[in-house]
């Protein structure tokens, strides 16, 4: 397996993980309506990225062990928990922690996209470069979104507890 393949695999896992985390955060913060809706929208980008990376890995004949995905029961539980806690301030801290986690996950993916784009140029792999050029901007937008939400929410959440 080449270094590119290793990076593809790491990024594939990273995008799958981010899609799951975005979905989980959307469910956990059902009563934070903007978080809920936008995180759901952004999960779609990572799912698409993961799909395209899986296709590329297949083209490269690389095995990619499947990841566990979250169960329906767990997501219902998360939504119900969110509704039960909707009137309390403490979930605000949990929200900031979750947004920080999403931001770091997206940052890890972004760096992998950067590596792949660089390697694609070095190896003149136009397909890989096209993939990175199509997906990486959306990863950067995921990072900008988490950063914006943290910036907007932390003054109120941290000063009101």
């Amino acid at each position: 397996m080449t270094g590119i393949d290793l990076t593809l695999r790491a990024l594939h896992h990273g995008e799958q993980h981010l899609a799951e985390e975005l979905t989980a955060v959307a469910e956990r913060h059902r009563t934070e309506h903007e978080i809920h809706h936008i995180a759901t929208d952004l999960a779609r980008w990572s799912t698409e990225h993961a799909q395209r990376l899986a296709d590329t890995l297949r083209d490269h004949d690389v095995d990619d062990p499947p990841q566990d995905s979250s169960s329906g029961l767990l997501s219902t539980l998360r939504e119900k928990a969110a509704e039960a806690l909707g009137r309390r301030p403490e979930p605000g801290l949990l929200l900031l922690r979750d947004l920080r986690g999403l931001h770091l996950d997206a940052t890890r993916n972004s760096l992998h996209w950067e590596m792949l784009a660089q390697a694609a140029q070095a190896t003149k792999d136009d397909e890989l470069l096209a993939l990175a050029s199509a997906c990486h901007p959306q990863t950067l937008r995921q990072m900008r979104w988490t950063n914006t939400m943290i910036k907007q929410l932390s003054p109120q959440i941290l000063s009101s507890l």
Binding site: E34, P89, K151
Partner: peptide
């Protein structure tokens, strides 16, 4: 003058009220 973040929009204000802050 608070300017560390955009002025809070109405839907978020109702959320802060719901949450108790």
């Amino acid at each position: 003058i608070p300017h560390y973040a955009p002025p809070t929009h109405a839907m978020q204000m109702f959320r802060y009220a719901e949450q108790g802050s």
